[in-house]
Computed example of a mutant assay.
Amino acid sequence: MSNNTSRMRTIFRSKTSKALDKMEDPRETLDDSYDQQVKLLQQVRQALAEVATAKKRIDLQGHEMGARYQRLAGQASEALSQGREDLARAALERRSLLERQVANLQQQFASLQKQTEQLEARERQLSEQIAAFRVEKETIKATYTASEAQVRANEAVAGIGATIDDVGTSLERARDRVAQMQARAAATDELLSSGALKDLTAAPDADIERQLAALSAQAEIDRQLQAMKQDETTSASARSGGTRDEGDEWLSIGQGPTSA
């Protein structure tokens, strides 16, 4: 059951990652939109500069025509004062023609002035929109990045959880194997001790020697019990007839039938 759950989690994480990879990254989309707006703002500012240049050129031309207009008026007055009505008439005719040209120039200047005001208003409005869009763009990007990091973190935690489950299962299997191996070791020890399982590494006839050693050990225990009984009788006689020096008793350990 745990292995199935782990596989399901792995499949789910894989599908989730693929789905996220296929999704359009909104951060790139927002940056592209911001760049396009900035380019548009640059175009508006460039157009505004061109209109301002044209308006300045018309303004300079208007000043030149205005100066000529005033000069023609002075020439007509001077010609009339000198009795040259024909020159005065020619100056006034040129002045009238120039006046029409100046009126046309004034219309162009007024049109450029209106266009300048409109472009300036658009430039201010677009600048404010771009500034607001930039703030919102960075906020959305930061939020998306944080959410993306949270998704990755959640996937990592889910992976750790699945790993912990797998580790728990591995530990449980390891405990079972250890218990089985311990039981098997104890069983083989008993079989070796009883001789039912032959130890291939032991010396030849080791089983006979082992049984003889066990018999010898049993015989030694019987002998020590018999010696203890005799010591009880000897101790009773010693209490009535005399005692042996207790300081020399250690010399008799293992030397005679009373070595118990």
Rank of each mutant, 00 (worst) to 15 (best):
R71L: 05
L20A: 05
Q82N: 10
S127C: 03
G62Q: 14
V38A: 13
T145F: 06
L30C: 03
T143N: 12
E50K: 12
T116S: 09
T116G: 15
P26L: 05
A76P: 06
A142D: 15
A153K: 10
K55M: 15
R95N: 03
R84N: 09
Q43H: 13
E50V: 07
E120P: 00
S147F: 02
P26Y: 03
T139N: 12
E138M: 02
Q115M: 13
A73L: 04
A103L: 14
Q75H: 03
N154P: 06
G66A: 14
R27A: 03
A52I: 04
V102M: 15
G74P: 00
L92N: 01
Y34E: 13
L126M: 15
Q42Y: 04
D32Y: 04
S96W: 00
Q36A: 12
E78D: 08
T139I: 09
S77Q: 03
E78S: 09
V102G: 07
E138R: 05
L80R: 09
T29P: 00
D31W: 03
E128I: 06
E148H: 03
E136M: 03
R68I: 06
E136S: 12
Y69R: 06
D31T: 03
I140F: 01
A47T: 14
E136H: 12
G74I: 00
A49G: 14
S77T: 00
D21M: 08
A67N: 05
V157R: 15
L72C: 04
R152C: 06
N154I: 05
A131D: 11
A76R: 03
V135L: 10
I58W: 08
